[in-house]
Write a protein that binds this DNA or RNA. Structure first.
Length: 791
RNA sequence: GCCGGGGUGGCGGAAUUGGCAGACGCUACGGACUUAAAAUCCGUUGGGACGAGGGUCUCGUGUGGGUUCAACUCCCAUCCCCGGCACCA
């Protein structure tokens, strides 16, 4: 019986003693950068989802190494940020004290045991000053490039926690931490202008070798929509009111205009007699929480401002309304209402008895009709097609021009928290907003016990007099530091760049190494980070490219988003108490078994269903592998060698296409065959171990060593040399009569149609089908199938 | 509502893209070994019909149509599940 505990411990020790996975980054001949998503060392340990992700990525890395690449597989810790900070707050520990402990546990007790080919020399910890010095450096570079700006904005606010919340911390309109209703609050925040890159971020997706789901998530997050801006002159003069629309073809159907309550010029539009009503209206809107405000079902509310605009084409007088269904942050913050052809405008018009004018041909019962069609009641454009008008929009009238908007909004990077890299900005009365010069970085996060957010909406750092007061880098006069820290997503937006030279004190990454190793060849991780992390990493890479620091603009050539694990068909959750603890299986089944089972239980990209019975099955399988390895050496049959040829192809195909389950299945088939023979050739045993090694590295190493292999199986190459056996064996060719399988004939590979037909005639059963009929057609696919059409 | 992904035995899932549907594994059942159990090994395991039997026939990949010598795979329509986006103008 295979003693997995002993063997795994032995190889874990050898792996760390011999440093087998350290890559000579300078001199590597065939660099392959295999990246996985580094973990937050925040909770009590790695969970099964982390393991699943890391192992899936490591299988790929080990495979590429077997294939002869110099595989660079680094790991680190996303140690700053709200996850780690909230965890520290919950257990009442200082994050600066707790985080290193968590990292120690992750690294020593978990990551070093799972058999991944990590190069530990490249470890990065985002909360270390050596790392965040460069996070701050990136901030400064973006600031200097005009991509970082401080502006007033309405941000998510939790009235209970009294803190600003990131979008991703608001779930169904509620605070992620305390479940109270989130509201909006206007504060001054730092933003990265990612929206300037919206088109490139969208366009580049076409060229990227990424899983389709991941690209689709990014596309909808960017949310491009094309249309036109139409300018409506105000009756009383002043600036024109601009409205974005995707349907300029319905412009003749505009019966009123609507602006958002927060629209910059809304108060100016409200006439004197309506000021009081507007004030009350605004108060009601402010009070509304986000869930209610954005609910589709909620009845729309609005009020007439008393002002009028003029229709640019017809000269008609149009009422200007304020309504809560219009959002200031999208488009121009103003909407041209076409109730006949827009559901929201239709509802609103009915409620407030505003006119409805049909301008696209349809039955009146179909209103609101939102499809394209023939334009009617549209002046000289009557009879035109919608699509035709939209394509021509720039030529129609001076008030209309084609325009594009995106749902993507600028990235709010400031956080009023403690556990993050301080934003490297100084405010000076004389010099204004001044970035901290590069040679003064990092701006160290002060060591203090006063780090708990107080609900003032300001960072705890604002209470730290020693930190706040500084001198201006330009005029040396008294100045104050920015007290917000950076969003955690900035830490992780560039970590893969740091891995190539984590100790470099002169720059965030060594240029030569970056040229040699970047961009990342393969990135495997969960789709839960498809929006934010991947988008931000792409943006930072593009920005560093444009500022001349990187030679590429897309960080990840290939990305594969994998699925989620469920437990016995049930979603895992702490409340259901059905979380799988991976460490437990290290003792009962072994790491090899867990790795192999995780890859076998389902299709990696789709996710899988974890069952203990499956773990037992894989344990049996590994025991059988061990049994074969200990069979007497002797000659093996040609058919077993041909099975090996088949298994080699299967494993290669399955790994390259991230269909690991089918690779493991192929190995099981080979093992089932091999068990039928009493002897086995040494080469077959070694090749089996090689094929198995990406999945179950420890047993594979042990078998390799047992059969006289040296150092590590990883450098022993990918199996080959069975081509002749694959060819020599005869094939079974299914024979169809009129498309139905009626039998099979055994023939040598490559047989031609004529000879095959002779075999069919000689076959008792098949020839029966050909009696008394006329053969009308014969379809033959070499070595695959024969179909005889008869009448 | 829009955009992705999917729907295959009792279950997890295969089928390298139009060429033997159900690989591999689980479960269940039967058997061997055992005083017994565990472990291990062997056999059966999509539905139906026929056959003493080796087997033979037939239906079958959410549903309804279509293309093709041949369809889980392609086309049209439709239902359901999962994920993303969403008062986005």
């Amino acid at each position: 019986m295979y003693d997995f505990l002993k063997v795994e411990e032995k190889w874990q020790r050898l792996y760390s003693e011999r440093r087998l996975f350290e890559v000579d980054l300078q001199n590597a001949q065939k660099p392959f950068y295999n990246l996985m998503m580094f973990p937050y060392p925040s909770a009590s340990g790695l969970h099964i989802g982390n393991m699943y992700s890391f192992i899936g990525s490591d299988v790929y890395g080990r495979f590429m190494r077997l294939k002869g690449h110099d595989v660079f597989e680094p790991i680190g810790f996303d140690a700053f940020g709200i996850h780690s900070e909230n965890y520290a707050l919950r257990v009442d520990r200082h994050p600066a004290e707790l985080t290193p402990e968590s990292i120690e546990y992750f690294r020593e007790m978990q990551l070093k045991r799972i058999g991944a080919i990590y190069d530990w020399r490249s470890e990065v910890i985002t909360s270390s000053p050596e790392y965040y010095k460069w996070t701050q450096w990136i901030f400064v570079k973006l600031f200097k490039a005009g991509l970082a700006n401080k502006k007033l904005s309405r941000v998510n606010w939790c009235p209970n926690c009294k803190t600003v919340l990131a979008d991703e911390q608001v779930i169904d309109g509620r605070c992620e931490r305390c479940d109270s209703q989130a509201t909006r609050k206007e504060t001054s925040q730092w933003f990265f202008e990612i929206t300037r890159y919206a088109e490139r971020l969208l366009k580049n997706l076409e060229k990227l070798d990424w899983t389709e789901t991941t690209k689709s998530i990014q596309r909808s997050w960017i949310g491009k929509s094309s249309g036109a801006v139409i300018r409506f002159p105000l009756e009383n003069g002043g600036p024109e009111l601009e409205a974005f629309t995707t349907r300029p073809d319905t412009v003749y159907g505009v019966t009123y205009l609507v602006v958002a309550p927060e629209f910059e010029h809304a108060p100016a539009l409200v006439i004197a007699e309506k000021k009081d009503e507007f004030k009350h209206f605004m108060q009601d809107v402010e009070k509304m929480d986000i869930a209610t405000r954005t609910s589709i079902k909620r009845e729309k509310r609005g009020m007439f401002t008393g002002s009028y605009a003029k229709h640019p084409l017809t000269g008609e007088k149009l009422q200007i309304w304020v309504a809560d269904y219009v959002l200031a942050e999208y488009g121009t913050g103003a909407v041209m209402a076409v109730p006949a052809h827009d559901e929201r405008d239709f509802d609103f018009a009915l409620k407030y008895e505003l006119p409805i004018k049909q301008v696209i041909a349809c039955e009146s019962a179909e209103l609101p009709f939102t499809g394209y069609g023939k334009m009617i009641n549209s002046g000289k454009h009557t009879e035109r097609r919608s699509e035709d008008f939209i394509a021509d929009v720039d030529k129609i009238h001076g008030s209309m021009s084609s325009s594009v908007t995106y749902h993507l909004h600028d990235w709010c990077v400031s956080r009023q928290r403690y556990w993050g890299p301080p934003i490297p900005i100084v405010y000076c009365d004389k010099c204004g907003t001044v970035p901290v010069p590069e040679e003064q970085l990092p701006v160290l996060l002060p060591e203090t016990d006063d780090y708990v957010p107080d609900g003032s909406g300001k960072s705890p750092l604002a209470r730290n007099e020693e930190f706040v007061h500084t001198e201006c880098p330009e005029c040396s006069g008294p100045a104050k530091r920015e007290t917000d820290v950076n969003d955690n997503f900035l830490d992780s937006a560039w970590y893969f760049l740091r891995y190539v030279s984590p100790d470099n004190e002169a720059s965030p990454f060594d240029d030569d190494l970056a040229k040699k190793w970047l961009p990342v060849d393969m990135y495997i991780g969960g789709n839960e980070h498809a929006n934010l992390h991947l988008m931000y990493a792409r943006f930072i890479t593009m920005a560093l490219h444009d500022t001349g620091y990187l030679h590429f603009e897309e960080p990840f050539k290939s990305f594969r988003g994998h699925g989620l694990i469920v437990n016995e068909g049930q979603k895992m959750s702490k409340s259901k108490d059905n979380m799988i603890n991976p460490i437990r299986y290290f003792e009962t089944h072994g790491v090899d078994c867990l790795r192999t089972y995780l890859m076998f239980m389902g299709s990696f990209l789709e996710g899988g269903d974890f069952r203990d019975s499956g773990m037992d099955a894989v344990k049996r399988f590994l025991n059988r592998v061990w049994e074969i390895a200990n069979h007497p050496e002797g000659e093996s049959s040609d058919s077993l060698k041909s099975k090996m040829a088949w298994a080699i192809d299967k494993v290669e195909y399955s790994v390259r296409n991230i269909k690991y389950n089918t690779g493991v299945a192929a190995l099981m088939e080979f093992v089932n065959e091999a068990l039928k023979e009493e002897n086995i050739e040494k080469k077959l045993v070694l090749d089996l171990a090689r094929l198995l090694s990406p999945f179950a590295p420890f047993i594979a190493e042990e078998i390799h060593a047992l059969k006289g292999g040296t150092v590590t199986i990883l450098d022993s190459g990918f199996p080959s040399g069975y081509e002749e056996y694959a060819k020599a064996v005869s094939v079974e060719i299914p024979v169809q009569i009129n498309g139905k399988i009626r039998g099979k004939v055994s023939a040598e590979r490559g047989i031609d149609q004529e000879r095959l037909m002779e075999l069919v005639s000689a076959d008792e059963k098949l020839s029966g089908y050909l009696k008394d009929v006329r053969i009308r057609k014969v379809v033959f696919v070499k070595d695959k199938i024969l179909n005889i059409v008869v009448s």
